[in-house]
Design a binder for these strands. Structure first.
Ligand SMILES: [Mn+2]
Ligand SMILES: [Mn+2]
Ligand SMILES: [Zn+2]
Ligand SMILES: [Zn+2]
Lengths: 137, 137
DNA sequence: TTATATATTTGTAACGATTACATTATTGTT
DNA sequence: AACAATAATGTAATCGTTACAAATATATAA
């Protein structure tokens, strides 16, 4: 994504840009790894020794409410976050556990049997084995 | 689904058809409501007073491993189960919390950027407001 | 600047869904 | 009936998440 000024970006979405919030959001856009709360916490705890895991929880929940992050529920045992809020799908490799982005044509989904419904969010999740893992095993 | 003999169906998928397993699977195919563990437990506990919630957990996990139920993770705070294992999408209404099935054209998704990956499962989840709730509020 | 109010962060305790595990019950076989 | 194997049950433990109160930081007014 092309976010140059993170503080300004947060402000423009109604979020006061505290130090911790800026750092969490910066983590998301520089490491595009669809991290869990724990991943973010462990990564930042070194550089921000006073950081509390509760703050990471609160911050990501706030980001989700303000719609600057997507909440990704591919697996039932982990919640991941994504600062890329454009419409795209997620592929999780069952061997290396990496989550890949992919594009898809939403219009061509050609959805039947739920006409007249209001769509707020669409999530497309695919599980399988990625190219790397297919070759190396 | 057209499953006449549940016990036979379980056997054919490598599952010994104990009384509890048959009852849980029967619940799934008669009430097509994408229930949680708790929903199944509460519904059957009346008729099977000795039923343990652990058994419902074990049973649904076994069904998922043997691929006779789908695990549905639309929301991060609830795991739902579906005995209809055909490819179809799920719409969750954010007002009435009902989960609707819908069909979609998998081929037309036209997925880019993950060529050469092996797909095991595809999930399409949509959240929004259903037709009923739109009209009645 | 100082005082005061508001917002945010922190750390700990509580919660709740899920799992682990030991015990009991059931089923199938000799 | 005796035995072995499998499944169900109930309780305790686990772990991710949330609630909450105290501490800290930030903004505003005097
Ligand atoms: Mn993504
Ligand atoms: Mn379904
Ligand atoms: Zn992989
Ligand atoms: Zn509804």
């Amino acid at each position: 994504m092309g976010i140059e000024n993170v503080a300004q970006y947060l402000k423009s979405h109604g979020i006061k840009p505290s130090y911790q919030r800026v750092r969490v959001f910066e983590y998301l856009i520089t490491n595009r790894n669809h991290p869990t709360v724990d991943t973010v916490y462990k990564a930042l705890a070194d550089e921000i020794p006073t950081l509390s895991k509760t703050t990471v929880y609160n911050t990501l929940k706030l980001f989700a409410e303000k719609n600057i992050v997507l909440v990704i529920n591919i697996e039932d045992n982990e919640i991941r976050y994504d600062a890329d809020t454009s419409v795209h799908g997620h592929f999780k490799c069952l061997k290396c556990n990496k989550v890949y982005d992919f594009q898809f044509d939403e219009e061509n989904l050609n959805i039947k049997s739920i006409e007249g419904f209001d769509f707020h969010q669409t999530h497309v999740y695919i599980k399988g084995i990625c190219k790397n893992c297919k070759m190396n095993y």
